[in-house]
Amino acid sequence: MSIPRTLNRLAGYLQGEIGARRRTLALLETQEASIQANDPAATAEALRKLDREMSTNGEHLRKRAQLIEQLATTWGVPADLLTLGSIIERGGPAAAHLAPLRDELRSITALVIRKNRRLGALIGMHRRVIRDVIEYVLEDERGAAMSGAGSLIDAEA
């Protein structure tokens, strides 16, 4: 396979990766909103969608590894040394169209990471609050938490 053709396929991969990151970002925002609205059903739904989104990630990784492997073989360099920056530099004009895609992917990935961290902090806080409430509600007459001793509620009892 020729280098230009491989680079074009890499551009297609980048566009797909950018779309996937945007969807991930949107799902994280939905999840955050559902938590703020105290809507467990919406949170669960957002989690299911995120799960589906994450399940497509393997295909992205495989495709990316295959393209980078082809370029590394062509250029005679180890694949793990190639980055998008070095590919653009090695490809010259044939790889120029990859630069804006790389920038956009970098930008959206940074947004996802920040949103993810903030959501992580929010979820951590909520878990502690909920734990406190449940401990309070279910503590026995001596003040000992029952939740630590077993299941919370026997719904059939």
């Binding site: 990766e17 999840q31 949170t43 994450m54 990630n57 970098r106 940074a110 993810n116 979820i123 878990r127």
Partner: peptide, 25 residues
């Protein structure tokens, strides 16, 4: 609680995934 538990796992997955992505950028 259950949702947050699940969400916590995804936070880690998403974090790993994107860190990996940043590595090649």
């Amino acid at each position: 609680e259950q949702n947050f538990q699940a969400a916590s796992r995804y936070i880690q997955v998403v974090n790993d995934l994107h860190n990996d992505l940043l590595r090649i950028l």
